[in-house]
């Protein structure tokens, strides 16, 4: 996260906390395409992506303290929330669609469920790289960590993700 972005995010956070309704439109204009893109890539369904995008922005307005500008950029926060919501929505649709499927299917955890078990420092990196389409260099910049650290966390996270049930395809990550 760059210094200018950090300062801008702090001002946005301050205005959100102070109930300045104009700021949400500004945040939407700056980040909606990015958030929608992440949700669409995760869910693969424009209707789900649309719903998730609206929910992520309204959640930011309703619970502004969920976002701490000193712990990461707003762009990252929005992307991670969009991914989690879209993944959870897609998993629910799968479970409902599965109906009376064989009991063995129900024991296979969804990617979202496995992701939730990863330590937060790994989960953020995996979500940004694997689901939000960032390179490890961009992930490093987003999370204010070194590129080496980002690459190592990504490798460890993907390995853990694979061991947890659904294998992560490391070749899809843009390094």
């Amino acid at each position: 996260m760059g210094l200018a972005e950090g300062i801008a995010d702090q001002a946005v956070h301050r205005r959100l906390v102070h109930g300045d309704e104009a700021v949400l439109g500004e945040v939407y204009d700056a980040h909606a395409a990015w958030v929608y893109g992440v949700a669409l890539r995760t869910a693969g369904d424009p209707a789900v992506a649309e719903q998730v995008t609206g929910e992520v922005f309204l959640r930011l307005w309703e619970r502004p303290y969920d976002f701490d500008p000193l712990c990461g950029s707003l762009r990252t926060w929005l992307a991670v929330r969009a991914h989690r919501r879209a993944a959870a929505r897609t998993a629910r649709v799968r479970v409902v669609g599965r109906g009376t499927a064989a009991s063995g299917d129900a024991e296979v955890p969804s990617t979202a469920e496995v992701l939730a078990t990863l330590p937060v420092e790994l989960r953020d990196v995996v979500e940004l790289a694997y689901f939000c389409g960032l390179t490890y260099r961009q992930v490093a910049a987003e999370l204010s960590i070194t590129e080496l650290d980002a690459a190592q966390r990504l490798r460890t996270g993907l390995l853990m993700l694979g061991e947890g049930g659904k294998p992560g395809d490391a070749t899809e990550v843009r390094l």
Binding site: G19, E21, L24, A32, A33, Y36, G54, W61
Partner: peptide
């Protein structure tokens, strides 16, 4: 990928229902 045009107005219309602005 850009979100559909109508989504902005729909999202902002829900703002006051979630939390009262100052």
């Amino acid at each position: 990928t850009r979100p559909p045009e109508h989504l902005r107005a729909r999202t902002l219309a829900g703002l006051a229902l979630c939390r009262t602005p100052a």
